[in-house]
Design a protein around this nucleic acid. Structure first.
Lengths: 336, 336
DNA sequence: TTGTATGCGTTATCAT
DNA sequence: ATGATAACGCATACAA
């Protein structure tokens, strides 16, 4: 491994001079600087991030906390896209990505301790149980954090527009003539609350009265539970004409149930998903859904975090709302 | 931040004593050691991984190289599962995971340089173009590497049993009475070569002559190309009775094309996928496929790498073959 | 059994 | 414009 000392020896200068030259300080003569840089290149010099971190107290390393509950943390395309996007944006700013978890090796530590242990400059928190004390401890610590789809007071967050998305979906369906609209929702997270609230409010604004049985609980990313919920809806004396699913993947369960019962989409019943993952766009009929802009979510989260890290003084916590857009497929038909 | 110096001051001992006590050295009296450990706990001491890395030359950090070509690196469930599994196993041994890429911040470096820069103890390489000079440079460097689904001479690799898997699939289909078996394969990677070779060999062993037109090229994880390949197969004067797809997700394209042409599965034609991702098991009819054990792949890759890192002397490069298993669904029917 | 001294690679401060 | 020195937090060889 070639270090600045090696370069210093070869160039007959001190280590300090090498360091300054390499970091572009102005108090080094142009000639010497050029010399040193040339030598560094020739010798294949690489800065040592570890030494730099130790000295500067900045690791240029961002932790990501994606807990794989229901073992679908990364299996869920929405989150894997966000991760990919966070990674790309962070790299642009010179930051690497490290996963944060508990119980690393023998030492059992919590999220905060892990992040500290690795000297993370900040952490992006997504896809976790935000009521977990370990998560709360991390967020309220001295480590800068940005959360996704959840807001902590005085902290920055990046949010998918669940309220707007659901409203748009309902209005679209309404516009197609549907009045008996059912909603199968995911487990009670902050996201579900927003979508559910928006669903009700929008229906109310449109003058629709939705019977309680049209609201069915299920689980995100779980076709089975959505399939069961679909069955419950089909058993009603007055069936809905349109069913909204918790997410695109869950819809598969509904699709199966509908097919099993000989109910065809969209002739007999209309459906829509949520997320706009790749799958929704390769299915036939193409699924009408609301696309969450995962790429933008990840990008903005990384930008927000880097901003906190690099401009701590002038930073003000803010929530960034990321709009999505309706993807019109062929699963919602027009009815009179 | 509390350091060993703080503990030393409070316990009235030297930093060296603290260090030894915390690391369980035997030359410290039980009493002092207990004292120190107690104080450390009370003060909320956390070791600083950066300082340790600088001192020991070991980062306890593993790099993962998952290139998102075709932007499906992590979008592909097979790889996201492997990643999750690598992470879990690595953590058990006390290693963290950092993504390796090129062009980090301003500095443009290649994979090797990036891994060096971050002092990675080793790198797991998957889902990349293994002929990329940058990948080859990394693998042939002083950094220990383990590759997935590709073998470099004198290096450890973890391999999915593509030859065995394809053979099992073909024999299963044959056992169901199929003789006209078509194979839509992915782009020409090492994996494709193995599956293709195994397909031909197995057919030959079974006494089957497969017409050239039954072998159709497509792209992994791309329903569109598989849909087109499916169409080409359906246009043949003598249609196959069974089609094998490059992977489960690609099968969606075939499914759409078949439905469009009014060909039903498995009544009119039988199909099978490859991978055994979640999707394949929630579709109805359930897709017959060959499940690759991604969890085991990731686990073994991490274990192999940790072994190289921790026992470099006694280490011998080895290829670990991970068997999968046939998932019998309802998409291959019995014919006479 | 405990402590002293040193160095890992880097950067910042202060002299020169 | 350049260099000597110290410091970041830790672990180890060696001295006491």
């Amino acid at each position: 491994m070639v270090t600045i000392t090696d370069i210093a020896v070869r160039c007959n200068v001190s280590r300090a001079t090498v360091s300054k030259a390499l970091n572009g300080h102005s108090d080094i003569s142009a000639e010497t600087a050029a010399n040193i840089r040339q030598a560094a290149r020739e010798m294949g010099y690489l800065p040592n991030a570890t030494a730099r971190t130790l000295k500067l107290g900045r690791s240029h390393n961002i932790g990501v906390l994606f807990v794989d509950k229901t073992s679908s943390g990364l299996g869920h395309e929405y989150f894997s896209q966000i991760l990919e996007s966070v990674k790309q944006e962070a790299e642009k700013s010179g930051y690497d990505i490290t996963f944060i978890s508990r119980d690393i090796g023998g030492l059992s530590m919590d999220y905060y301790e892990h992040a500290k242990y690795r000297n993370c400059d900040g952490v992006i928190v997504a896809s976790v149980d935000f009521t977990d004390p370990a998560v709360i401890k991390l967020v309220n610590s001295d480590i800068p954090t940005v959360t996704l789809d959840y807001v902590f007071d005085s902290h920055s967050a990046v949010l998918s527009d669940n309220v707007g998305g659901m409203a748009e979906l309902v209005r679209y369906v309404y516009g197609k003539g549907h009045r008996r609209i059912a909603f199968i929702h995911g487990e009670f997270t902050s996201v579900t609350q927003k979508r559910l609230g928006s669903f009700h409010r929008t229906c109310s604004e449109l003058g629709l009265t939705i019977p309680d049985e049209y609201i069915q609980p299920a689980t995100f990313h779980d076709p089975k539970s959505s399939g069961l919920a679909t069955r419950r809806l089909l058993e009603l004396k007055e069936r809905p004409t349109c069913i909204l699913y918790p997410d695109d993947f869950s819809f598969i369960g509904g699709m199966n149930e509908l097919e099993k019962q000989g109910v065809s989409i969209p002739e007999d019943i209309s459906v829509a998903g949520y997320d706009g993952i790749l799958l929704s766009q390769v299915l036939r009929p193409r699924l009408t859904t609301y696309r969450q802009d995962a790429e933008a979510m990840g990008r903005e989260a990384a930008r927000a975090l880097v901003e906190i890290i690099e401009r701590p003084k002038e930073w003000i916590p803010r929530q960034t709302m990321i709009p999505g857009r309706l993807l019109e497929g062929d699963t919602v038909r027009t009815i009179e």
